[in-house]
Design a protein around this nucleic acid. Sequence first.
DNA 1: ATGAAAGCGCTAACAA
DNA 2: TTGTTAGCGCTTTCAT
Lengths: 355, 355
Amino acid sequence: MRAAGTINANNWTSAEKGTTVAVTIRDVANLAGVHISTVSRTFSAPHLVNEETRRRVTEAAVALRYQPNRAARGLITGRTYQLGLIVADIANPFFPLLIKAAQAEAARSDYGILIADTDESTEVEERLLRSLARQVDGIVLGSVRIDDNVVMEVAEERRLVVVNRAIEGVPAVLMDVAVGARAAMEHVLGLGHEHIAYVGGPSSAWIDAQLRATVSAACRAAGARLTAIGPYSPTLSGGEAAAARAVATGATAVLAFNDLVALGLLAGFGDAGVDVPGQVSLVGVDDILATAFTSPPLSTIAMPTRLAGQLAVDLLLRLLRGETPEERSPMIPTEFLLRGSVGPPPGRPGGRRSP
Amino acid sequence: MRAAGTINANNWTSAEKGTTVAVTIRDVANLAGVHISTVSRTFSAPHLVNEETRRRVTEAAVALRYQPNRAARGLITGRTYQLGLIVADIANPFFPLLIKAAQAEAARSDYGILIADTDESTEVEERLLRSLARQVDGIVLGSVRIDDNVVMEVAEERRLVVVNRAIEGVPAVLMDVAVGARAAMEHVLGLGHEHIAYVGGPSSAWIDAQLRATVSAACRAAGARLTAIGPYSPTLSGGEAAAARAVATGATAVLAFNDLVALGLLAGFGDAGVDVPGQVSLVGVDDILATAFTSPPLSTIAMPTRLAGQLAVDLLLRLLRGETPEERSPMIPTEFLLRGSVGPPPGRPGGRRSP
DNA sequence: ATGAAAGCGCTAACAA
DNA sequence: TTGTTAGCGCTTTCAT
């Protein structure tokens, strides 16, 4: 055993700001008068260390403000304690709450979140995903554009969870938008609407397929006509671009791919002098903040983005711990929020709700 | 020189998904028939490698899908190629665009962004900041609550840039909210308002101080009365909570700390039957999406969050490259957006604009 | 319960 | 221009 109390030259700050030489496990070992492996054990397997020794080591670590170097630890354990989170567009109001929840859930297990969005060419996206895959222990994919095959390939080499996407063999967290969409359609059709328009988003989006199928089934069951238009960009301008065509369909009720599109439609309708809900009823998807403040307030299908972010990370961490994923992906219910943008069709002011 | 073409057993995938043994620099060296240091040079100092050799190495790397292990590289270079981004609340619409821009700018230099928000106890925030500081090359702080002294301390050991905050000796990117606020006040006062209310946010926020000072100076110059209330939480509910008191001040025009507060005020005014802008004019700060859709549309001071995110990372990266920071922090101009929520004071419908 | 030693994958002198 | 060597900070056998 060496003499206690010796610490190496590292313990002083160099002149340059931002270049403090870090205190290492060796400094702690010297100060505590033990071997570095004992210090290591104190942190990664405390029960293997004598209580008194552990106390001394811990004290020394605190005194020196020692924190294990994650890169060094990761080099040998193969774990970075970081997760990658890739989303389609951080600035889309759909994502922030998901990101926030994911980060919070990861932090609970001492994991960090490396974030990126794929607002670029498909090629860039793929490179991004592949390079991220090497740096993290697992990945949450909340994006729509990366090719299924690429995702499956990456999923082979890194734990990966997708959100709102169904890929054979890839664990997923899904928002059951069909529940909310069915409720919306029931209400709208119950009011007497006989011609519905669906303004679609990116055709590769799982949500788009879900909405399409749900609306279609509901219309068929009710004997109503359905006109689907699109795909449009899932943005405000996408909605604005769709407005004229949406009106031209002659539909008296419109379901939009998401709230941004619905907001764009609302603006477009306003410009064209089309009254909502007098002439056309309008329903969006996501329940972003702005929907509560439009006039009329926008009916929408609330998406559980917070819960999804949390569950996705939770699932990913469980996979990393070696647990086997459930057979079925968790389906998180959504909810139809009825607001002022929905009313009876024109010329039928007394339209009745369905039971 | 060893025989070319040999690759180690690592080149196969283990049965377990997500546990592919990574291909290392050694595999590439073997396949290319060179020493590992030559492979290393090919990536980190290509000009030191013979062209033909470089080609062979690159080919081998591509064939093996080799990517340098960042942890290993970081262990020796002391660089993680990651930046930390800490914000007050990811879900606050003020931040996503900043985050997105920061991430994009970092990616251009091959840096990753580790994100976190500090929506918690001050103690948690500090631990978060301190532990993050050890894992990244530099930090962007977009939060308001962490104590100045802690920030300065961390700034001693890691490069750090703050956004919208002024701390002695800490490089900053600032949004010149005073420009927009002055324009707003000029307009409002020009309409004839003689009593202004300022609904303040967290008193530790630099923006709050800026707004307070600007509004105060403008009122003094115009001989108008100013009533400041607060602090309120910078959220929707903060605004709702402030509504009654804001009305009670008797002011005919209200400037809110941010748009969320303004939105809350708008809702509160609506509930109380106070007409905007008939009885009270209202101005927010940030230009979040929802402000364009309220009725009346909310006048606001547009904040250059995208540019701020980009500049903050740009500044940080330049500091990391050893460049000396400018003496003055960059001030990014803001802009007053006049919308329907501002009008002449009651009983003075013809109020004139100032020049 | 603790120490000794090997080595994770890589870079950076130094030598050749 | 390339190979050799040492070692970044840590964990993990294996001895003791």
